[in-house]
């Protein structure tokens, strides 16, 4: 926990100063998560503000301060999901529509070729975001939380409020869909895969 329970309780009672402290404590983490979830740096701040505004209005629904973090994550996930849904039309590019450059990036990633560090980072971002945009918003958010944010199944259970088994099934299916898209970017590997069959 980045803040004391007392601060959360004070914020619940309408203390603006305590609320500010909570925002200050969590904003970096939340904005980082949003950045990785939505993949558009220019909109991260707007979505972050939306998360904290929602937090302000729903603080009275928080029963115990112990569950504050997963609950804040849930608000973040919901805000990111709403944003991604609004942006769906722009993000409907399929892996089959990937540019030549993106295929080269995938190839470079697979081959482990050395690229200039910054250039490579930018390409990695573009590539993973392309992969994630090829699946639904639900899959994208779930995979990002698990694979990129590194949240445990227990934490995901609290955020999604579903049983671990159901979560595992959802994760497996989401991963399979991304893997298919990933395989489509690597013709060499795909050939090997079809050869194996």
């Amino acid at each position: 926990m980045l803040v004391d329970f007392e601060i959360i309780e004070r914020a619940q009672q309408g203390d603006g100063g305590a609320f500010n402290q909570m925002v200050q404590a969590y904003r970096k983490r939340i904005l980082g998560t949003i950045a990785r979830l939505i993949g558009r740096p220019e909109d991260v701040e707007d979505v972050g503000q939306e998360v904290f505004v929602r937090l302000f209005f729903s603080l009275d629904q928080l029963r115990t301060p112990e569950v504050f973090e997963p609950w804040l994550y849930r608000l973040t996930v919901n805000a990111a999901y709403d944003y991604l849904r609004r942006q769906r039309r722009r993000r409907e590019s399929r892996m089959s529509d990937l540019s030549e450059q993106q295929v080269v990036i995938a190839d470079a990633l697979a081959g482990g070729r050395r690229l200039d560090e910054e250039q490579q980072k930018a390409r990695t971002r573009e590539f993973v975001q392309s992969l994630l945009s090829s699946v639904s918003e639900e899959d994208r958010i779930l995979l990002t939380l698990k694979e990129v944010e590194g949240l445990s199944l227990k934490e995901l259970e609290q955020i999604y409020q579903v049983k671990e088994n159901a979560l595992k099934v959802r994760l497996f299916r989401a991963r399979q869909r991304v893997l298919k898209a990933f395989a489509a970017t690597q013709p060499e590997a795909a050939k090997q895969l079809s050869g194996d069959d």
């Binding site: 980082g32 950045a35 990633l109 490579q120 990695t124 590539f127 993973v128 694979e147």
Partner: peptide, 10 residues
Amino acid sequence: AFAEYREACP
């Protein structure tokens, strides 16, 4: 790729 993505996101 996911691990690199985390590092690559500023």
